[in-house]
Structures are given as structure tokens and as C-alpha cells.
Amino acid sequence: MAWVTRYLVAQDGLSEYVGRAISWLTVAMIGVLMIEIVSRYFLDAPTLWAHETSTMLYGAFCMLAGCYTLRHRGHVRSEVIWGALPERGRAFCDVLIFSSGAVVLAIFLKLSITFAAESWAVLEYSNKSMWQPPLYPIKTVIPIAVGLILLQSLAELLRALLTLLKIDYDDPRENEIESDIDPELLPSILDGDTAAAVDTKR
């Protein structure tokens, strides 16, 4: 099943790449707001664009982060029952969830493409402040983000399906440990014993 592994490596790689690229937007948000604060309090010249720019950065950042979170199994789920199931039982649940999820995301994708297209059609702009920036770029982020999360969830679906059907495959993610705890602070996390005890949710 080498093609499965190649596909999973490629798909995980795509989400990883997106996550790493957009993670810089956090620094951009800090920068934009610091400029606003400095120009308002020290130069007495509030900017017109900082609030809306930081909001748009926020919106784009968080939307696009969804696929990265999914790739790192970071979407919070309740494991009280699910976690107690045997491996194939969990895989069965995942197949149900990610297949119905894919349908829902496909609907979402279609709606969001229309939403963005309509904004492009009238070259929509924001009317909150005098700055009046165009809104179609930020609205275009929605279908892109939904498309990316749909792609990643297809990879999750395939993983669950193969596990359920007892088809053997090499999961490139198998040896990754997802933890909320800073690895720098906790070198011991790298030995398997502790890792098993670490909650993997966020």
C-alpha cells in the first residue's frame, strides 16, 4: 500500500505547510496593533486601517489554521466513550464522522464559493471606516480554508477506513506525539512511557 503512504505524506505535508506559513500571521497581528498603539498614543495620529487589518488577519489566520489543527489531531473531541473503544471500534466511529463530515464540508465549500463569487461580482468593499477596504479577498479565504480542511479530512477518512477494514498501511503520522506541553520544558515526554499518559487533545 505504498501509494496510500505517499498520499498521506503529501496531504499531511500540505496541511503542515499551510500551518507553518500562516503561523507568521500571529506576528503580523502583533505588529499591526503595535503600530496603531504607537501612532495613537505617541504620535497622536490613529491609523485608519489597523483595526480592520488586524481583524482580517485574524479571520484568515484562524480559518486557514483548521487543516493544520486537524492534521495534528487538535480538534477537541470527547474521549470518554470513544477512547475506551478498541482500535477498530474507534475507526468505525471515525468513518461515520468523517464521511458525514465530508458531505457537510462539501456543502460548506459550495456555499462559500458562491459567497466569495458574489463579493467579487460587485467588488464589495467594507463600509465600517473611512478606509473602505475591499472585502472579496477575505471572503475568498473561506472557500480556500474549507477546501483545505476537506482535503485533510479525506485523509482522516481514509486512515479510519483502512483501519476498519484491517488493511495494513504505513501511517506517516504513527510515531508523532501530539501534546499540549512544551517539549522544551518536558524532555521526558519523548520517552514512550510518559507520552502514553499525555492527553492529546489540544
Binding site: K128, S129, M130
Partner: peptide, 22 residues
């Protein structure tokens, strides 16, 4: 003085060099 105003009014005030904020 800094005045809160929405876009159309802000533009008019802007032409008198009155600083506006949204």
C-alpha cells in the same frame, strides 16, 4: 480632538483636518 464617526461623516470631518476613529 479625536471623533468617532462612520465612513461618510468621517470623510467630511477629514476635509476639515478633524481626526476620526472608527
Amino acid at each position: 480632538r479625536k471623533i468617532r464617526a462612520t465612513s461618510q461623516i468621517a470623510k467630511v470631518l477629514g476635509s476639515f483636518d478633524i481626526p476620526t476613529v472608527y
